[in-house]
Design a protein around this nucleic acid. Sequence first.
DNA 1: CAGTGGTCTAGACCACTGG
DNA 2: CAGTGGTCTAGACCACTGG
Lengths: 237, 237
Amino acid sequence: MRYLDVAADLRSEIGSGRVGALPSEAELGERHGVSRVTVRRALEILRDEGLVDSRRGSGWFVRSDPIRQSLGRVTTIEAALEAAGARPDRHVLEFAFESAPEAVAKDLGLAVDAEVLRVVRLNLADDEPFALVTVWLPAALGASVSRADVERATFSDLLPLHGVEPGRIVQTIAATAADRAEARRLHGHVGDPLLACRRVTYDRSGAAVMVSEHRYPARSTALEVEFPLSTPGGTHG
Amino acid sequence: MRYLDVAADLRSEIGSGRVGALPSEAELGERHGVSRVTVRRALEILRDEGLVDSRRGSGWFVRSDPIRQSLGRVTTIEAALEAAGARPDRHVLEFAFESAPEAVAKDLGLAVDAEVLRVVRLNLADDEPFALVTVWLPAALGASVSRADVERATFSDLLPLHGVEPGRIVQTIAATAADRAEARRLHGHVGDPLLACRRVTYDRSGAAVMVSEHRYPARSTALEVEFPLSTPGGTHG
DNA sequence: CAGTGGTCTAGACCACTGG
DNA sequence: CAGTGGTCTAGACCACTGG
């Protein structure tokens, strides 16, 4: 898809530190040998990712905002950090098969004592920790995943390689205070506010394939969620 | 915008109970007197909203597993408390017209010194505070809202009564530590972790009509969000 | 004013579906 | 096979920006 190529090009340019105004749509079209419509399609993808924005009559610009994650895409924290010029890194802190904790077993539809792979990983940007992630996979799926795999790639990149077609994701979001282990690993202090997300990922058939818990220090991130339309009634707003 | 008209038409048809296959893009184009590209643009908006999906070579279909509860989920905090048998209550702590703070003015598309209505409200369940909400409305809209209105009803119930057709909502979610005022009002302690949400509500025409900030003590709540499909690449999962 | 993004059109080619 | 969605093009008109 040409529009994906154009988007990837621009994304990596932005990731390499490009700031300010982008060339006009017309010029981008000439440069990439595509029509203006295709350029726009690419730019709108990047806009959805929060990387660029446009001003009518003026042009397209690289966004300088603090890191945001568009949850319509759940996927961009690392990408956004990368785009902001930060050097991403991952450290696998734990990698072990164990008995599924009750809540995990329930979410994965397994027996309580079923075996699961548990991975704890620290995500860094410029050597600064910004997310502590714990992932549980059913043993059958975890068996084909190596520690090196986990160090190298994201789980959402890994799953498709192991025959899982990712489907919907249900995320629960809360605030917690950092405990001793979290504080140590995130280079913070006990009691620091953390954004705590718990995700259950399903495959296209509707079966749960992964449970993950994410801890973000308050300083480092904000999630952004967009709802197309409000439904009547029942809000506390 | 014609594509918004087409999207609105289809949305209301689906809202009225339409199920199964939609007419082909070509036929929808003829029916609405627009080109196929415009039809697709409308359909892709509805896809983003989780209302429809397509199969290449086959057609577009109304989704039967409604993904729409994403917002329903976020708005059910009070409803869930009620369902759990808790007695809900609201106290209006502040109700005043004032100069818009810079960030609010920007989100509402107002001049920095424009007048806005600022309301601070505490939501309780069984006399226990569970949410501290600050709402800003443009003065023109706020002028028709009384303090009693705000005490009695939610803003999402109020807006339609004042001619606002609610559209999309963009929510930013973060964790913070309670400051002195927040701690006092939420019956907690300074430094307690809070889930901090900032919402911008738009009307159907895309104009921002309300900005709100929500503080939930960690003990009381978690937001649940569902995403229809994960997108490839770039996650930290 | 020239240049820009926002929208829209008519037409094309392709891969795919399903009879 | 005819019909469908996915992608792409060249061209157009408009509102808006900013010198």
